[in-house]
Design a protein around this nucleic acid. Structure first.
Lengths: 230, 230
DNA sequence: ATAGAAATTGACTGCCCGGTCAACTTCTTT
DNA sequence: AAAGAAGTTGACCGGGCAGTCAATTTCTAT
């Protein structure tokens, strides 16, 4: 009856399984994320995902059961990344530094995980049928908590008064647009795809709008930004 | 051989047709816009659109031929709205007033035509296969033109220096997020759907970030915003 | 070495979708 | 009034999709 050493650290939500299972699931999720991002849930097909993963279609069903379950696995995988970016926003920190770090982290995600951002965006666009619970509980709680920090800063006169929730909405919008709508940006800029310089300019622009918008200076060494005061 | 009075003003791209044709096409496009926005191109089906329009499926095919053609008609219908918002941005205007008007116009569209915004957003998300040409030509030209205005304002020392293109990217992101991601906002705010007050707060927030971000005051009578300077 | 578990895979199926068509009705024009 | 054009519609079809399954191979544990 004693558990063998097989299951080393079985937590609540079955994170383990054999070493093969873990690796294959991760691989399939990564490939599925790309396909879902490129085509949307409806146009994406299990065959296409299978092809992207270099596996037979039946194998995907062996690991995930149904297309919807695979899609949910992709979404959950994404959510684990998202929330932690807000960590620097605590009362003790300097507003400029904290918000600057938050914006930088979000922009980095837009650059490094564009597919994740797109899948998330598409899910929200269509009413978030699979994420309603997460949005109304975990995210809502997190935003309430961090909004209190923003309000504390406002009360101490460190930043100008704004609605903290809408401040987050606009920061999310500006940072994720660099992942979600990169196609539009590239077309407008007349280039094939965004490069490091574009993300740097984007980060500078977003940082400037948010910090100056809140009446504070881009604290210390933010970025090699043009500094020519009239 | 002379044209009867039937075709009164046949322009280049067949905008007319009988009065019935015109009305039915418009009705179908409106219903299709909603279905595409709610479900995405792939999940949306011709039957569902037909049901939404209270018409038999074969009727949609009579007017639009294929699902893709109907989708393109929806997109084109949307594009006619988008570009004109930028009109107030001309060199003679005061930057604060011009940008404030632009932001207000975009926010109004987010509120009044959320489905249009969502269809457009989904199209961009998935690489804009049907809009590449438009983005690279018309939109690119328009942005170049308006960027020149922004740069002229900068040169005259009226606003702080930023990259004009990225300024537009962030304004688009902030304003359209109120249409595209309304689900997320409602969940975070703990309400069913956004109301007039939420759009007002959003407009105030975006206006503040952009104008103060550019180092200028929210010119004149912008909005009944909280004004409690420390 | 061996036996049971886990993983792999090609072949198969039933369903629903986009699209077609021919019969029919309603408009429009003179 | 009449006839042709425009619009409407139910029935139908082939294709591609998600999902299944049984046969087989590979892993793992002892």
């Amino acid at each position: 009856m004693g558990k063998s050493r097989k299951e080393q650290a079985e937590s609540a939500a079955e994170p383990l399984g054999g070493r093969i299972r873990q690796a294959q699931r991760a691989h399939i999720i990564a490939c599925a994320e790309r396909v879902f991002a490129d085509h949307g849930f409806g146009v994406a097909t299990m065959s296409r995902i299978a092809e992207a993963a270099s596996l037979p279609k039946a194998n995907l069903h062996y690991y995930f059961g149904t297309k919807l379950l695979l899609y949910r696995a992709v979404l959950e995988n994404i959510l684990t990344l998202w929330l932690d970016d807000m960590d620097p926003i605590v009362p003790e920190n300097d507003p400029a530094a904290a918000l600057g770090a938050y914006i930088a982290a979000k922009m980095a995600h837009s650059r490094n995980r564009p597919h994740a951002s797109k899948v998330f965006a598409a899910e929200l666009l269509h009413g978030a049928p699979e994420l309603r619970a997460y949005l109304g509980l975990d995210l809502r709680r997190k935003v309430a908590e961090k909004s209190a920090v923003i309000e504390a800063w406002m009360a101490r006169g460190l930043i100008a008064p704004v609605d903290p929730r809408h401040l987050f909405f606009t920061i999310w919008a500006m940072t994720q647009t660099y992942a979600d709508f990169d196609t539009q940006m590239a077309a407008v800029l007349g280039i094939d795809k965004l490069g490091a310089a574009d993300y740097a300019t984007g980060t500078a622009t977003v940082t400037r709008l948010v910090l100056r918008g809140l009446g504070i200076e881009p604290a210390g060494e933010t970025m090699k930004q043009q500094r020519r005061t009239a």
